[in-house]
């Protein structure tokens, strides 16, 4: 069983730090914009923002290769941006328009891109965990060395099917990385109220699965832990668990009265631990300049504004779309 490791962050290049800064900032600004569009009624239903957790996906995606897969929960906008999906297509799905990744039929919680090996966006808590193990089974079956990330929350970590998946993943040595994004709360229930086990990743021990805990506000620590997990899985040793300690700044979804934690708690996290701020500081301590970072801020703002404009202008799906995509056309798929 791997223990908690100290992280080395000495040899990180300025280029890499700038890349992390840009990617995390894109997620944050995108999410802020999504929040605004929700308030204006342009986005409907449930909308779960990723603000505060940016370092988790950005750090883990840093070591992925072509063909690696990912599957996550309804809190999925950041994952899509981090694996290279187009902000315009993601935003247009949020507004339910025809240029969205699911052509407006899935919405915020249910979005997919086969090209990006992004297998969703799932609305049922816990359900995507075995799905990720199944994707890993497909790679193992085919005999390649691709790995799958299956992301889930601290709340989801109590669902029974997670443990059924753990057990099978280990006995079949599936190349799946179980990423528990422990943001401290499942809706209004703090981790402490939902479980008495001292750590979530250690539950893997009961099934013989290795893992570790990671500081999810530190993108470099996440990247390093991700590298270990990927190495482990790619080399055929079976599944690996990462419990990434993170924090969400906003409500669970848009309609969260947030009476279960204090404003001070949120404020403290934002001020002392913010992942983007940490990278920003580090860059400025090196030889990056304020102007350089401002230029990135501006560039990101433009990308996000463009995505929002695109998402507003994209037409609603054609009414005939109501009846499409229910079955695969068997003849057409044979010819494909």
């Amino acid at each position: 069983m791997a223990a908690k490791r100290a992280t080395r962050k000495s040899n990180v290049s300025k280029e890499e730090l700038l890349k992390f800064y840009r990617e995390m900032l894109l997620i944050r600004r995108f999410e802020e914009k999504a929040g605004q569009l929700y308030g204006m009624g342009l986005i409907g239903g449930f909308c779960h923002l990723y603000i505060g957790q940016e370092a988790v996906v950005v750090g883990l995606e840093a070591n992925t290769e072509e063909g690696d897969k990912r599957v996550t929960t309804y809190r999925d906008h950041g994952h899509m941006l981090a694996c290279g999906m187009d902000p315009k297509g993601v935003m247009a799905e949020l507004t339910g328009r025809s240029d969205g990744y699911s052509r407006g039929k899935g919405g915020s919680m249910h979005m997919f891109s086969k090209d990006a090996n992004f297998y969703g966006g799932h609305g049922i808590v816990g359900a995507n965990v075995p799905l990720g193990a199944g994707l890993a089974l497909s790679d193992k079956y085919k005999g390649n060395d691709r790995v799958t990330f299956t992301y889930f929350g601290d709340g989801a970590a109590n669902q029974g099917q997670v443990y059924e998946a753990y057990n099978m993943a280990e006995i079949w040595e599936l190349p799946v990385i179980f990423v528990i994004e422990n943001n401290g709360y499942a809706m209004g229930t703090s981790v402490k109220r939902a479980t008495k086990s001292p750590s979530l990743w250690q539950r893997g021990a009961a099934y013989g699965i290795e893992g570790e805990e990671v500081d999810g506000m530190d993108v470099l620590a996440v990247k390093e832990a991700g590298a270990r997990a990927i190495e482990f899985c790619r080399s055929g040793k079976g599944p690996y668990i990462l419990e990434v300690k993170t924090y969400r700044y906003r409500g669970h979804s848009m309609s969260d009265p947030a009476k279960y934690r204090t404003r001070e708690e949120v404020q403290k996290m934002r001020e002392e631990r913010d992942a983007i701020e940490q990278v920003r500081k580090r860059l400025l301590e090196g030889d990056a300049t304020e102007d350089q970072l401002k230029a990135i801020d501006k560039e990101i703002k433009e990308i996000v504004n463009e995505a929002a404009e695109y998402a507003k202008e994209s037409p609603e799906p054609d009414l005939s779309e109501l009846w499409t995509d229910i079955y695969v056309d068997a003849d057409a798929s044979q010819n494909a």
Binding site: G44, G45, E93, G96, R97, S102, G104, K105, G106, G107, S108, H110, E316, P317, L319, E321, L322, W323, I326
Partner: peptide, 16 residues
């Protein structure tokens, strides 16, 4: 309800 999974888009949901 129509014989389809519920779509997200506002216009399609109304129709469903």
């Amino acid at each position: 309800g129509k014989d389809v999974p519920m779509p997200y888009a506002a216009n399609l949901e109304k129709l469903a």
